[in-house]
């Protein structure tokens, strides 16, 4: 059993390193999937034709999803955090004896 785990670990390790080598460089021209999400850049006019960068103006497409397209979700998450902190504050508040 230990041998199987070790072999699986080694295979996974090699796979991760291989994918790290094969990944395209930071800022390289995007693949087709990026074209659909981030948008299509027209290099002659210097403007984005459609997509997330054109609509939100943020380079980070993840942030544009989290704070713009799914902003309600983030508001709910902040509300969950607020409620949890209010609960902790209520539980551990200082009680004055006098």
């Amino acid at each position: 059993m230990k041998k199987i785990f070790f072999i699986a670990f080694v295979v996974f390790f090699i796979f991760m390193f291989y994918s790290a080598y094969e990944i395209r460089d930071f800022g390289n021209p995007p693949s087709q999937m990026d074209d659909r999400i981030i948008g299509k850049y027209n290099s002659t006019t210097g403007e984005w034709e459609y997509g997330a960068v054109n609509e939100t103006g943020a380079n980070n497409a993840v942030t544009s999803v989290v704070f713009d397209y799914r902003g309600y979700d983030t508001l709910g998450e902040a509300t969950v955090l607020f409620t949890a902190i209010a609960g902790v504050m209520m539980l551990f508040r200082r009680v004055k004896n006098e």
Partner: peptide, 25 residues
């Protein structure tokens, strides 16, 4: 709206403001 390959800090509309708000929170 940033051009290709540059990332100016004053882009993104309300996203930086919301980021700062959530960070404070």
């Amino acid at each position: 709206i940033p051009k290709w390959g540059v990332s100016p800090l004053n882009s993104g509309g309300v996203l930086p403001i919301l980021n700062i708000a959530v960070g404070m929170k």
